[in-house]
Amino acid sequence: MPGRALPTAPAADAVPASCSAAVGRRTTAPVGTLRLVAAVAGKDLKVELRSREILYTMALFAAVIVVVFSFSFVKDQKALVAAVPGVAWAAVVFAGTIGLGRAFEREREGDTMRALLLSPAPRLAIFAGKTVAIALLVVAVEAVVLPLCLLFFNVDLGAAVLDLVLVLVLGAIGFAIVGTVFAAMLLRIQSRDVLLPVVLYPILVPMIMSGTKATAAILAANDADAWFWIKFLAAYDCVFTIVALWTFEALVIE
């Protein structure tokens, strides 16, 4: 309660000082970086699951994009299947950008980004944790976009839907890696809301292109092409993971 004096809680006398030896000692062995990554990502997801703000707004935004665009590609009361890849990826990227901005904006409330950077956790772990959380958010949005697209465009994929899931997951990973670096870099800048998509989208072009091509190939049941683009997408993820790992420490800190 606000009005209470500091040491009034019952246990305060039983455990008088913060120096009670049994608890609170720092572990001597370095805590595994993976555990820290999981802690940061887990924290982000826990916060998100409490409010569901980002998830709901992203999903609704993506759904609106799919509906509005399929509506504009209607011919003879049927939406053009050729428009599916473009519509799906536009929805994912736009909604992803909204989620990315909010996920970092949230770290500004309560100044928790400072708290993260102040902790002895390596910056790599913080960066990776946020990337994982954002990738999972984007995957969640894709779980809304994909069925909606299949529904509105009257597509029946059968087992090939699994290939499409793989494409979408690889796309989400690529988006999260590049997006996290850029969003973290722009964090200190006033006009970051506008600048983020301006600088992010050109870098995402190879990802969006290979994603749409792969989606189109899967819709056309062209396995060879689909796998080619899936590999390209994986290569994109690898290249930018390397660049991100090399640069993020220099970029995020100041």
Binding site: V23, G24, R26, T27, A115, A121
Partner: peptide
């Protein structure tokens, strides 16, 4: 959460 980041045991 912060205890994990700081490597505080228990």
């Amino acid at each position: 959460f912060f205890a994990t980041l700081y490597g505080v045991a228990d």
